[in-house]
Design a protein around this nucleic acid. Structure first.
Lengths: 340, 340
DNA sequence: AAGGGTTACGAAAACGGTTTCGTGTTGATA
DNA sequence: TATCAACACGAAACCGTTTTCGTAACCCTT
């Protein structure tokens, strides 16, 4: 087993001081050419690499960024993560991921742990529980310590930091307009509990488009599904009761589940009923019929978030930049569930 | 902005030495009760937390584990990652993820970077390119340095370390047996390039089951698809040429793509043709008809991998344990694509 | 009163680097 | 020959901890 070699080892072996070795390896002008050659050759031979931890301690920067997300087995978050990881890596940063699992406590514990020197900044998306409780003290602690923080997708106005979000309201509005342009009138919304800011905003876009078309909002056209363990009978009852010819779902899973139910009920997609979902994941592409969805461009969001974060990390200390909110524009990808 | 407080700050403020503060916070017997109270109260008030980096340097352990996987936007790897993350977190470890993106170079760069002190051990799955090249020098370097390494799923015999794999051969064998028991005779295999050890092993199971049933292997029943960008016409031609009544696919995407094609060609699933895939992801559950698949229990694999890794990390230095290979048993989840 | 054992704390080294600030040696200059 | 840069290198501080070891101060013993 070859132990890792340190500056001290090289210094001892070559009978020079540690500082000389350090400088020689950085090609400092201070060191004579012979010594430099000797040190560099030795270092190369023994494959010397500086210890990251020692560097971090000295430089007070770890070149690590912390990513805290509610869930990793979830297409959207996964793509955002990829964006973050790619951009960060390319900029020389590593990524430490913590999954909050939609739990407030886990989110708090993870952030506090990482905040003690392990990372230079955070990219986060709030857990469901955090959004429901509206308790952001842990984020306040982070920002008060001067640790840069970027929130994406699941954000909250009460937290002041950089943010990256989708134009949720606008794109939901556009989706409904598309239904309307298609002659659909009875447009339903399938959504989650309202404490999710994104669902809320998508609902706003939905209502806006309807009211603009002078279609009164009808509560019986709105179905709120639980976050997990959706049961089919609820869906069946919803579509059995009201007359519906178009459905906007706030995610692709809801859309696919609803499509399966209405198909079993004998309706034809998109002739009798059209669907648009959010999250352009694999499901949307492969389900039958293929689903028209709003591509949220997760990878792009991740890139943007990482870019903003690293910019802050590397900014001069007292460069008092105001917080920005960047908006990534969704794209409606048309597939079989709407064209007819 | 509240700067992070250090031992030195507390020591200065309370006019005691740094060592006293350190000991007082650890409730050392050495320190008088009054001093302890005073220090602890002060530390609590100012929310003192030890700096992780300094601890890492001192202790020579980071409590970080490195995870290097080929792809993150991929159901199987994502679930494994979740398993790793959950187990590690619960054991007090954080997880640094690097995505090799199926590239050998990225894999090498990432591992070398992390190996310089950033992590206490690795969990990895080999990139496609690494498997194709058969070059494992970077892994050798890691293990030679005494850094624990656990490989999962995409492993190789030439690397000596702990491993976690699926019983690929056996479960593929069982899947084919299931087809046979169902009266199917013309059983196709849809697979990837052979340098993937898992595909290779699944193919072995497939062939074993056939030869056991005295069915000669027919090369025209084997379709090799590229890793990405599958084009439909190739699939169409395959199913148009040979008479096939059952298909084993080495992943769910292939299965879903093939199912879509054969359905368009007018075949009925599962009456005319049955399908079994690997990777029990969301696609399998939601596609029409739902797909019978081999659940690879990614989360379990991740847990097992993390457990083995942490065990090694925390083992006494010279505890010469032999390397182990743990096998996670797949489960065939029956759905509509096979029952009839 | 000298010796011995606690008690309660501090000094310093160590982890592995970087960097500032000397300083001894050399050669050139006056 | 005395002076002075320039050169080439080393000592030491520092980052924030932990931990070993040393040692004042006190009390108790005889």
């Amino acid at each position: 087993m070859k132990r890792k070699i340190t500056l001290k080892d090289i210094a001892r072996e070559l009978e020079v001081s540690i500082s000389t070795v350090s400088k020689a390896l950085k090609n400092s002008e201070e060191i004579g050419i012979d010594t430099k050659d000797k040190v560099q050759a030795f270092a190369k031979l023994y494959n010397y690499r500086p210890n990251n931890i020692a560097l971090s301690l000295k430089n007070k920067r770890t070149k690590n960024i912390g990513v805290v997300i509610p869930d990793i087995v979830h297409y959207f978050f996964t793509t955002v993560f990829r964006g973050i990881e790619q951009y960060s890596n390319q900029k020389g940063y590593n990524v430490i991921v913590c999954v909050s699992d939609e739990s407030f406590d886990k989110e708090v514990i993870n952030t506090e742990l990482l905040a003690n020197g392990s990372i230079d900044g955070f990219v986060m998306s709030l857990s469901a529980e955090t959004q429901r409780k509206g308790d952001f003290h842990h984020l306040l602690e982070i920002t008060e310590q001067g640790i840069p923080l970027v929130l994406f997708d699941r954000v909250d106005d009460k937290v002041s930091c950089d943010k990256v979000i989708l134009n949720d309201t606008e794109i939901a509005y556009q989706a409904v307009k598309k239904f309307l342009a298609n002659g659909r009138k009875n447009i339903a919304l399938v959504t989650t509990e309202s404490y999710f800011n994104v669902s809320e905003k998508r609902a706003e876009g939905y209502e806006e488009a309807l009211s603009e078309a002078n279609i009164p909002a009808r509560p019986e056209l709105k179905l709120v599904l639980p976050f997990r363990d959706v049961n089919e009978s609820e869906i069946r009852q919803f579509f059995g009761t009201a007359k519906i010819d178009a459905v906007l779902c706030v995610n692709e899973i809801f859309a696919v589940q609803c499509m399966a139910v209405v198909q079993k009920m004998g309706m034809k997609i998109p002739d009798d009923i059209a669907f648009i979902g959010f999250t352009d994941g694999i499901l949307s592409k492969y389900v039958q019929p293929t689903l028209t969805t709003v591509a949220q461009h997760g990878e792009r969001m991740g890139e943007v978030a990482a870019e903003m974060l690293i910019e802050r990390i590397e900014a001069e200390i007292d460069e008092e930049k105001p917080f920005r909110t960047k908006i990534v524009e969704g794209t409606i990808i048309e597939r079989e569930s709407t064209v007819n």
